[in-house]
C-alpha cells in the first residue's frame, strides 16, 4: 500500500475529527474544507481525476463558502463565534453509538474476503465520462439538473425574509 494513501487518509480523518471537536465555528468550517480537499486528493490517487476537480469545485469552493456565510450570518454578536462544547449528556451516547458503528464496520470489513481485480481498470477519461453522461445517463442528468434548480429556488425562498408586514420577532 502506498504511503501517499495512508498520508491522505490520516490527514483527512484527523482534520475532520479536529473540526468536529473545535469550539470555534469558523475554524471548524475551514478545517472541514481541508478535509474535503483530502477527499479530493484520494480521488486523484484512485484515478478519478474529474471527480477530484468536481470535489474541489463543489465542496472546497462552494459548500465551504456557503457554510462560512451561514456561520457569519448566524453568529451571535457577543461571543466571537464560539459555541458551547458538546454536553456530556450528548457526547457520551454519541461516542458510544459512533464507536459501536465503527467497531461493527471494521469487524465486517476485516472479516470479509473481498475479491479485488487482478489488474487495474483502464483509465476512465473525461471523454468517456462525457459520452456516458450524454448517452445512457442523459435522463438522470436532466433529472439532477431539475432537482438542483428546484432545490436552489427553494433555498432562496426559505432564506429570504418574508413580507414587510410579518417581520421577525424583536430580539
Amino acid at each position: 500500500m502506498s504511503l501517499a494513501f495512508l498520508l491522505i487518509a490520516f490527514l483527512t480523518v484527523a482534520t475532520a475529527a479536529v473540526a468536529m471537536a473545535l469550539r470555534n465555528l469558523v475554524r471548524s468550517a475551514l478545517l472541514l474544507g481541508a478535509s474535503w480537499a483530502g477527499v479530493a486528493a484520494f480521488y486523484l490517487w484512485a484515478g478519478a481525476e474529474f471527480l477530484a476537480f468536481a470535489q474541489v469545485l463543489v465542496y472546497v469552493g462552494a459548500i465551504s463558502m456557503v457554510v462560512l456565510f451561514a456561520v457569519l450570518l448566524t453568529r451571535p454578536s457577543r461571543d466571537e463565534g464560539a459555541v458551547s462544547p458538546a454536553s456530556a449528556g450528548r457526547l457520551l451516547p454519541a461516542l458510544i453509538a459512533g464507536g459501536s458503528v465503527l467497531g461493527v464496520l471494521v469487524g465486517a470489513i476485516v472479516g470479509s474476503p473481498l475479491r479485488t481485480a487482478a489488474k487495474p481498470p483502464l483509465a476512465f477519461t473525461v471523454r468517456e465520462l462525457g459520452l456516458q453522461l450524454m448517452g445512457p445517463h442523459a435522463a438522470s442528468l436532466v433529472v439532477v439538473g431539475a432537482l438542483l434548480t428546484v432545490a436552489l429556488l427553494g433555498a432562496v425562498v426559505i432564506a429570504a425574509p418574508g413580507r414587510p408586514g410579518d417581520r421577525e420577532d424583536p430580539r
Partner: peptide
C-alpha cells in the same frame, strides 16, 4: 487496498456520525 479504503471511509463516516450526534449547533 480495497480493505484499507473501506476502513478509511468507515473512520470518516464515524467521525461525521459522532459530530452530528453530539454537537448542539445545527451547522455542525
Amino acid at each position: 487496498p480495497l480493505h484499507l479504503c473501506l476502513l478509511f471511509s468507515s473512520a470518516l463516516f464515524c467521525v461525521g456520525l459522532i459530530g452530528a450526534l453530539s454537537r448542539g449547533n445545527s451547522i455542525l
